[in-house]
Amino acid sequence: MSFAIEDVILIRASTSTDEFNWEGTDAEIEQFEALITSCEEGTTAEEAIAHNVGLDELTYRIRLSNDIWLDVRTKVVGAKYEPQIGLHGPSLQKDVWEKAKATLDNLYKKAKEESIDNIVFDVYTGLQSYTTTEIPQTNERTSQSPDNHSTADERKGSQSSKVEMLRVIFWTHHLKAPSKKRDMNKWCAELQVYGLVKSGYPGFLCFEGMREDVEEIVRRIKALQWHAITVKTETPYSFEEKNTQDIQSMAIRQCLLAKTHSAKGKSSSDVVRTSMDEVETGGELVQR
């Protein structure tokens, strides 16, 4: 497959609809979308390109933050894959923009030196990591420290009719290390959190459970070493149920991830046993 097409597919799998935008006329954008969609659905790059005669370049934008975009222009096919990547950040202070631009240039140079196939994806993930650490977002929630954390079992003595829940999805450059997967599976069982991960490039991690427990697993995951990782979505919600003696177990059982999870019990009276499931494709992740 064309590296230009692979890059777009990887980036689209790692971004939301407001983070990736085609650039061009309406006719060009329609042609861009038709090309990539057909490849995402299994058509080979050669066949897709043959059906889009005259399409030589792809132009698109990727939003890194509210203030920074990447502008990309690349040939669809060619002897060498040398995408043009520009930085757009008109509201940034000059010194901040210059540091970000220098980081982009260094990432691009390194990708070329190491003969990385998906140059745009590699530069994008590197810059995303940079903007997360060097240009912090003000609305990021602070996770609870481990010293103050109590497990779901320890909280059963203080039942109420309402439980605060949280579902969180991480995006990461890749997820391959067996040690990380073992740790996350162990943490899911310990904290009574349901987990679902998509391995490979890129990787996605999804966790759902009682808010305090999910925030603890988020803290632990961020403490691991990653090429690049960021929280894509956080969805807090409440579970309410009257006249029950074990509302916390009921709340965990009703999680969306619990409905198709391998650890789900056969009946509502079964002991809650949480763990982490693994899928290989983004499509499987979405279906779950």
Rank of each mutant, 00 (worst) to 15 (best):
E212W: 04
V279A: 04
L191F: 14
T142C: 06
A189Q: 13
N148Q: 13
T172Q: 09
K180Q: 11
M165C: 05
K181C: 12
I119V: 15
V8W: 01
I68A: 06
E113C: 05
D122Q: 14
A34Y: 07
K112R: 11
L256Q: 12
S38V: 05
Q248Y: 14
D183C: 12
Q137G: 12
F3E: 11
E284D: 14
M1G: 06
H174K: 08
S38E: 10
T151Y: 09
R63T: 05
A45D: 14
A177M: 07
Q128V: 03
W226D: 01
L35T: 01
N243S: 10
Y237T: 06
D95A: 15
V197M: 11
P202M: 07
N185R: 07
V168Y: 01
S249P: 09
D95E: 15
A34W: 02
V77N: 12
A177D: 13
E47L: 13
S161G: 10
F121K: 01
P202D: 03
E164P: 02
N148W: 08
N66I: 05
T151F: 14
L191V: 03
S249K: 09
Y81C: 03
Q287Y: 09
V193I: 13
V286M: 10
S161D: 15
D122N: 11
V279M: 06
W97F: 15
F121G: 00
K75G: 07
V120I: 05
Q254A: 12
K99W: 04
M210Q: 14
K75T: 10
T17C: 10
D56P: 00
N106M: 11
V76P: 02
E234R: 03
V123T: 03
S38N: 10
H261N: 12
S267F: 08
S14R: 01
D153E: 13
K112P: 04
M165K: 04
S179Q: 14
A100T: 15
V214T: 02
L35Q: 02
S262D: 11
S249M: 12
I49V: 12
F170S: 01
Y194C: 00
K99D: 12
P236Q: 08
A27P: 09
K99Q: 10
G42Q: 03
I169Q: 08
L10D: 08
S199L: 14
W97L: 15
L256M: 11
F204W: 11
C188Q: 03
S145F: 09
A100L: 15
A48Y: 02
Q137E: 13
T133K: 15
D67R: 09
D246M: 09
T37C: 08
I229N: 00
T233M: 08
